[in-house]
Write a protein that binds this DNA or RNA. Structure first.
Lengths: 264, 264
DNA sequence: GCATTTGTTCCACGTAACGGAACCGAGTAC
DNA sequence: GTACTCGGTTCCGTTACGTGGAACAAATGC
């Protein structure tokens, strides 16, 4: 019965006391992600912090996930991805839409350079796919499954530029602006100016800001609603490819980004 | 430390009417697996059937997962893995314990043949890892992320042999015994006899039962409680490697399986 | 020794999850 | 045309499941 329940808009806590955020499923997924996060098996407290879920709830959910085979106790006190999660991962990776590889392949063909596809994930971007340039293969630190900061990578800056300002600021507040190279943008001012440039150009440049001697150009991949979900990038060695040439890849890059949008 | 979640009491119905099975999380995970299952994007009804979750609940959970970016609507009516699930998959794959690759590498070294690692998943086994023999590379149909029947593969038969009889029978009831080659074991009698042999030997043989011209020898990988979670196998071309030689790989194979147990 | 950190168990509470049934809407057969 | 089928969506009364602070235990640090 809807009497005069005049309660003002309230998030309406749940369960025992005050709740912080999210439905049950959402919490479980965040915990799953925290377990699978790079850096070996993780301890309960770390997982709880990373997932922003109270220790108590984390423990319960983690135990449930372990019972399902989704996580396993690696160490006596640490949790790692379980067999069932590993199976799921293999199937997901195998089930990648064929178009993705084709688009990335064409971009590598067109530029002759190493190509990356990364997706936005919290305060970082995660490399999903990497096509090495076979002609002159150099080893970048980048590897599939690896996370990189948003503010030092071309793809990350594309994401930041495309997110609502409030959201982008929140992510930067949480992560800070640690410098990874002398060229990294470590002040809000500098970053803001660069993001403005990204927005007006439609692509981002990482000029040795993430790794010395490495330059990237990136473009965002948007979901149907226009939100950036990740991006594509072309990676070059500074002393082999002049910046002008790198920037000349922009059209092909943006084309690839647009082609990827309906596939992610 | 989380021990095994011992499912003792009845699931105890919930909500509106009679419920079939499982907690909220469990259902969501099964749905996630159904979405990621091989064979392109799936429709809601198929997902509901595969996950054994009522249509209504499937719809709700699917919508929630879509809202979280874990699934996306590929077609207007079909669901596929979303960007967040793809990110998770990449991280899980990348975070694979280093030992796994080493053990499999040693096995390939020792046998000179193609090596597979597969995990049990419902009525099938899923290939997680494949090390091609580079010396004489032949193309098997097998690929990472692919599912194969239990009763026609060496690894699958190892799993069947290691599971409690009731459970194995239930899986066979559900999947049947479809023949994939003339050599496939398609009767309960024949299969039972073979599984007995597997149990006594400690390894299984697939003698062109899954793919013509291809023979495999497999051994189960057990979890801490002694339950099979998957297995390793060595694959050979029939006309290149006599069966006796294949069987001679058994000791190295079993050693590898044992070494993998604590890593899965 | 005390202080700190981390993992685990308890438990009163209420909402968020449940799923059968009804409802569409598009095919398709007849 | 109507009737039937099948897939997707919405409703809604019921309640059991999840909730998280607090207290506890165990390991570590100083």
């Amino acid at each position: 019965m809807a009497a005069e329940q005049q309660e003002s808009a309230r998030p309406a806590p749940r369960g025992g006391r005050t709740s912080t955020a999210g439905t049950a499923l959402e919490k479980s997924l965040r915990i799953l992600e925290a377990v699978a996060a790079p850096g070996g098996p993780h301890r309960l407290t770390d997982i709880a912090r990373a997932a922003a879920v109270p220790k108590s709830s984390t423990h319960r959910i983690l135990t449930a996930l372990a019972g399902q085979g989704y996580v396993r106790s690696a160490d006596e006190v640490r949790y790692a991805a379980g067999p069932r999660l590993r199976t799921l991962a293999a199937e997901v990776s195998a089930g990648e839409p064929a178009g993705i590889g084709q688009v990335l392949g064409r971009l590598r063909q067109a530029t002759g350079q190493t190509v990356h596809l990364a997706l936005h994930s919290g305060e970082t971007v995660t490399y999903i796919r990497k096509l090495e340039d076979h002609a002159r293969p150099f080893r970048t630190a980048s590897r599939t499954g690896m996370r990189m900061p948003l503010h030092t990578t071309a793809i990350g800056k594309c994401v930041l530029a495309g997110l609502p300002a409030a959201e982008a600021d929140a992510l930067l507040d949480a992560a800070g602006l640690p410098g990874r190279t002398p060229a990294s943008l470590t002040t809000r001012e500098a970053l803001r100016a660069d993001l403005d440039a990204v927005r007006s150009r439609g692509w981002a440049l990482d000029d040795e800001e993430n790794e010395p001697g490495i330059r990237c150009i990136g473009a965002a991949v948007l979901d149907p609603s226009g939100r950036p979900v990740g991006g594509v990038s072309v990676t070059t060695v500074t002393f082999l490819v002049p910046r002008q040439e790198l920037e000349s890849y922009a059209p092909a890059l943006r084309e690839a980004a647009a082609a990827l949008a309906p596939l992610l």
